[in-house]
């Protein structure tokens, strides 16, 4: 099986895997542009992408579906990368981008703005602000005494996330029935309003640019702080960097699409089960796979029960759970 090949020659087998995943990513994006209430045949799709298409295909592809597909890919990629980073930072396979309360802070911000009747950019701005506030709160409390073990960071994050959870319940109970559907869609994760992707894509690029040269350091960090330090890894600086990058990625993702579950927890594990635990392959592979999964899930979410649009978070779980269980079983 290919697992043993990766182990036998680390570093030799990375490119083919990434090319395949890149191919899947492109295919999922093309599928997302073509499928929907209006089916766009391949020749028309091709023409539209090259700016030569005829209406209504051109505007459906370029103005409606392309921004949403790119936003979906970017959000999925960010969540998946953030999940892989959180798992190595906390040295805990159950960690996901939301475990330290980032999404709770974002949700509290977003729901508050919905409750007071604001909409549009206000919701995204408040979500990002809430995420940043939560990130600084957790970092400040966990780092306060100077020692921040993974356990201390995890406990601090979980407690603060629980606090946000209580606030969210409070807002939901107190809100009017007019606001509730919007709030629930936000909480389940929803890409129907997602149009903004450029800042997120830049953030994703910067994050990958900072993480990939240090991917071998991450491998060592997963083996424990002392072991990593003994092999020359600047442990404290690296952990601070991972925390900030993972938090900003999560904040950027929830700002666009609410808290879409599952992608950040399970995609990194899917990659570990199929391609191994080397972060030099894991990080770019999880980024591509997370993006592809969310594009496919969102395409299904808007077309499966059309004209009803499902929240994409429902679909990520429906697609991901059987796939993950299959991989887990195959590797036993």
């Amino acid at each position: 099986m290919h697992l043993s090949d990766t182990a036998a020659a680390p570093g030799r087998r990375r490119k083919p895997h990434l090319l395949i995943l890149g191919g899947i990513a492109v295919a999922s994006l093309l599928l997302a542009l073509s499928i929907g209430s209006l089916h766009v045949p391949l020749p028309q799709l091709w023409a539209a992408i090259h700016g030569a298409g005829i209406e209504p295909y051109r505007s459906v592809v370029l103005e409606l579906r392309l921004p949403r597909a790119v936003a979906a890919f970017t959000v999925g990629a960010m969540l998946s990368l953030a999940g892989a980073l959180m798992q190595v930072l906390l040295r805990n396979p159950l960690a996901d981008p939301y475990v330290l309360g980032i999404s709770g802070g974002a949700a509290t911000g977003a729901l508050t703005t919905i409750a007071v009747g604001l909409s549009g950019a206000w919701i995204g701005g408040a979500a990002f602000g809430g995420a940043l506030l939560s990130m600084m709160l957790v970092f400040g409390v966990a780092h306060g005494s100077g020692s921040w073990t993974p356990t201390r960071l995890l406990l601090t994050g979980v407690v603060i996330a629980a606090g946000w959870g209580a606030l969210i319940s409070f807002i939901l109970v107190m809100s009017t029935s007019r606001d509730l559907p919007g709030m629930l869609f936000w909480l389940m994760g929803d890409l129907s309003g997602a149009r903004q992707w450029l800042p997120q894509l830049v953030l994703l690029g910067v994050a990958l640019g900072l993480c990939l040269p240090r991917a071998r350091d991450f491998n060592l960090l997963a083996r424990g702080e002392l072991q990593a330090a003994a092999l020359g890894v600047p442990v404290n600086g690296l952990r601070t960097m991972i925390y900030i990058i993972a938090s900003l990625l999560t904040a950027g993702a929830v700002t666009v699409a609410g808290s879409i579950g599952f992608v950040g927890l399970v995609v990194p594990h899917m990659i570990r089960l199929t391609l191994g635990t080397d972060h030099r392959l894991l990080l770019p592979a999880a980024t591509l796979a997370g993006g592809s999964l969310l594009v496919l899930a969102d395409t299904l979410a808007r077309s499966a029960f059309a004209p009803t649009q499902l929240p994409v978070g429902v679909l990520t779980a429906l697609l991901g759970v059987p796939l993950f269980l299959y991989l887990l079983r195959r590797n036993r």
Binding site: A7, Q87, P93, R216, A222
Partner: peptide, 26 residues
């Protein structure tokens, strides 16, 4: 070290190769 705990399992050869880390550039 007396105690070792890896968060994620890895192959034997990969584990031995961590010793080359300080000898390699980014």
């Amino acid at each position: 070290f007396q105690e070792r705990s890896s968060a994620f399992p890895s192959r034997v050869l990969e584990t031995a190769l961590i010793g080359r880390h300080p000898h390699l550039g980014p």
